[in-house]
């Protein structure tokens, strides 16, 4: 299935002939085979962007984190390798601390030093 075929087909199509219920009716390049079949999922994903939905998702994920952390008290590591990983909250703390430190060090300390303009080497 070639792209040229799609584009030339949609170039010929008069505007406003597509059904209004499509997720992207104004798309000037038209719908493809693939996009036609993914409209339902696309509409579902877009619907999740409503503020009350994003709040629900966030709360749900926080709840999952809490459950995971509590489970760490029940399911224990029988073969700790580093010593401290015998403690129940080692991995949550490691994940959080390593993540925060990594992002901070990379974005606030390393990148300001090595950052240049996009065309620094004149390749573009």
């Amino acid at each position: 299935m070639s792209d040229d075929h799609h584009i030339s087909q949609t170039d010929r199509a008069p505007e406003g002939t597509r059904p209004a219920e499509h997720a992207v009716p104004e798309n000037p390049e038209g719908l493809t085979f693939a996009q036609d079949t993914q409209g339902g999922l696309g509409r579902f994903l877009d619907a999740q962007l409503a503020p009350e939905r994003t709040r629900s998702w966030r709360n749900f994920l926080f709840a999952v984190l809490a459950v995971i952390a509590v489970l760490g008290l029940v399911v224990t590591n029988h073969h700790p390798h580093f010593g401290y990983d015998a403690y129940p909250f080692f991995w949550p703390v490691f994940g959080l601390a390593a993540g925060l430190a990594l992002i901070f060090i990379v974005k606030k300390i390393i990148q300001p030093v090595i950052k240049r303009t996009e065309d620094h080497y004149g390749d573009l």
């Binding site: 994920l61 984190l65 489970l71 949550p92 994940g95 601390a97 990594l102 974005k107």
Partner: peptide, 18 residues
């Protein structure tokens, strides 16, 4: 399974914060 979920879940929290 739990170790992977703890490691990834809480590094996800770090991303959310940052």
């Amino acid at each position: 399974v739990l170790q992977a979920l703890m490691l990834l879940g809480f590094s996800g929290l770090a991303f959310y914060i940052m």
